[in-house]
Measured scan of single mutants.
Amino acid sequence: MSRESDVEAQQSHGSSACSQPHGSVTQSQGSSSQSQGISSSSTSTMPNSSQSSHSSSGTLSSLETVSTQELYSIPEDQEPEDQEPEEPTPAPWARLWALQDGFANLECVNDNYWFGRDKSCEYCFDEPLLKRTDKYRTYSKKHFRIFREVGPKNSYIAYIEDHSGNGTFVNTELVGKGKRRPLNNNSEIALSLSRNKVFVFFDLTVDDQSVYPKALRDEYIMSKTLGSGACGEVKLAFERKTCKKVAIKIISKRKFAIGSAREADPALNVETEIEILKKLNHPCIIKIKNFFDAEDYYIVLELMEGGELFDKVVGNKRLKEATCKLYFYQMLLAVQYLHENGIIHRDLKPENVLLSSQEEDCLIKITDFGHSKILGETSLMRTLCGTPTYLAPEVLVSVGTAGYNRAVDCWSLGVILFICLSGYPPFSEHRTQVSLKDQITSGKYNFIPEVWAEVSEKALDLVKKLLVVDPKARFTTEEALRHPWLQDEDMKRKFQDLLSEENESTALPQVL
C-alpha cells in the first residue's frame, strides 16, 4: 500500500538533515546492470571481512566470479597478432551492500547512478522477487541517484539526491524531493519508509565518522582530508542543518603536550582565546566558526575552494607581477588587521594563504593565525623552527619566545613576496656552502639577476625593505602599504570589485 501522500506532506515541511535544493538533472540513458558494476546475484546478508577486503582492492568479489566451465583457453599460436591488451577495470570509489532480497550489490565505478523502476536507470528495480513485494509499487520510476562531484583539492564528494514520490531516507532522515545531501561511510539508505532499509553505503575513500566526538558529529558530517601540516590535519565537512561546506582543523593534544602547556602557563585558556579569535572579522582572514574541545581540538573554519598559494608557486613557478601585487596587498591588509588586534601570526607561508577560486584574479585569505593562542608560545615555536624557511632572523637566534615582536610577520611576508615574484625561495638548504640558518640570520638571500630583470624596481625595493635583518629597521605593514609599488588604483579597484562580488555589503578597509 502506498504512503505517498503521508511522505509528500513530510517532504513539504523539509528536513533537518544536511540537504539543499538542487537544479534539474539530465537523465542518464539506460545500460545493462552488469556493465555498471552490479553483481549478477542479489543478497540479503552483509559481507564478511574477506569479501570486503577483496573488493576494496579493486579485484572481483566472490559475488562477481564466473564459473571456469564457461571459459576456455586460447593457445598462444592462435592469439590474433593485432589484439590489444584489455584496459584494467577501474577501482570502485564506493560500494552499496544490499540489505534485502531482490536488490543486488553495487560497485560504484562510474560517477553517476540512477536507481528506480524505469529501465533507463543504471540500477533498475526489475528483479522478479522484488516485483512480488508489497513495497515495489511505492518505488518511483526514478527514485534517487548517487553521484560524486569534484571538491576541494581535486578530491571527490559523494551525494545522494531524492527524486521520489514516497521519499528517500539516509539514516532515517528524509532527504526531500529535489534535494541532495552528502553521503558518508556506513550510511543506511531506506526507500519509501524510513524503516525500509535497502542499502548500506560504503565510501571507500573516507574514514568512519565514529572516531570523532559526538558533539562534533551532531553538527557536522566529516568527509575527506584536505591537507595536513606540522600543526594538524584539515578535513572537509558539512553543516548538517545547511549542507554548507566547512573546513575542520584537528590539532592533536598529545603531539603538542597541550596539557603540560596549560600547567606551565595557567593563564592559557584555550576556550577564552578561541572566543576572541571567533570575533575577528576581516575579508582577508579565514573566519573561525566553531570550536570543540575533546581528546583533540577541532576548529571549524570557513572553507576556501581555490587551494593554497603554495600550489601556484611550487615547482619554480612565478606569478605575474600584477597578480603578485593583488595578492600581496590583501596579505598586508590581513596581517595589519591581526597586528591591530594584538595577534602575531608567526607562521606566514604560502600554505597559509588560501585562494577563493581558481581564477588568477581572486580574493585571498590568511589562515592559521591563532596557533600560539591554542598551542602555547613554546610549543608552537619548537614546531616552526623545524622548517625555518620563512622564519625571521630574530626568531632563530632567540631562546624560547623572548626578543621578537610583530616584525617577524613582515619578514615572512618579504619571503613570500620574493617567491611569488621570482619563482624560487630566497633562502634554501640546497645552497650547501652556507647553512639555512646562517643565510637567514645574515640576510644573504639568493639573488639571480636574469630572473629579477623581469621584475620592476619598485617591487624589488619593497622586497629589500622587508628582508632587513634588524627588526627595528624592517618595514611595518603600514609602511609597506604606503610603498610606491602598491599605489596602484587599478589594483585596488579590482580588489574592491572582487569584494563586491563576494558580498555587496563588504567595504574596502581604510588604508593610510
Rank of each mutant, 00 (worst) to 15 (best):
A9C: 10
F103G: 08
K177R: 12
F169K: 00
K235W: 15
T59D: 06
K245A: 00
N110Y: 12
L268S: 09
S252R: 06
C108K: 02
M222E: 00
K177C: 13
S252Y: 12
D111E: 12
G227L: 02
V109W: 11
E76Q: 15
T89C: 15
Y159W: 15
C108S: 02
P47A: 08
K214P: 02
F147E: 00
A91V: 10
E122R: 14
E161Y: 13
F256Q: 02
R117Q: 00
V109R: 11
L129G: 09
T225W: 05
Q34T: 12
S53W: 02
F201S: 08
C18S: 13
E4Y: 14
E233D: 04
Y159V: 14
V234M: 01
K245N: 13
L226Y: 08
R132A: 07
E4D: 06
Y139G: 02
P128Q: 07
T89A: 13
L193G: 03
S24D: 13
V200G: 14
W114K: 14
E233I: 06
L71I: 15
L129R: 08
L183A: 03
Q100H: 08
K197A: 10
N154E: 02
K131C: 10
P182S: 13
F115R: 02
S67A: 08
S120T: 09
Q11A: 14
G178Q: 15
Q10R: 12
A267N: 02
Y156C: 12
F125E: 03
N48I: 12
S73R: 05
S31M: 09
A158Q: 03
E4R: 05
K135G: 06
N105G: 11
S228Q: 01
V270S: 14
I74M: 15
K214S: 01
E4M: 15
S15W: 13
F256G: 09
P213I: 15
K153I: 14
S2K: 06
P152S: 04
K253Y: 02
E81F: 10
K249T: 01
S155T: 06
T59P: 09
N112I: 11
R3S: 08
N186T: 05
A257F: 06
T59R: 07
E8R: 11
A267L: 07
E64N: 03
E239M: 05
Y220A: 08
G30L: 06
R3Y: 05
S155M: 15
E86A: 09
V170D: 01
T59F: 15
E161T: 15
K255R: 02
F201P: 01
I157H: 07
A94S: 14
N269I: 08
S16H: 04
S55K: 08
G23C: 05
S2T: 07
R3G: 13
I74D: 12
R95W: 04
E263D: 12
Q36I: 11
G37W: 09
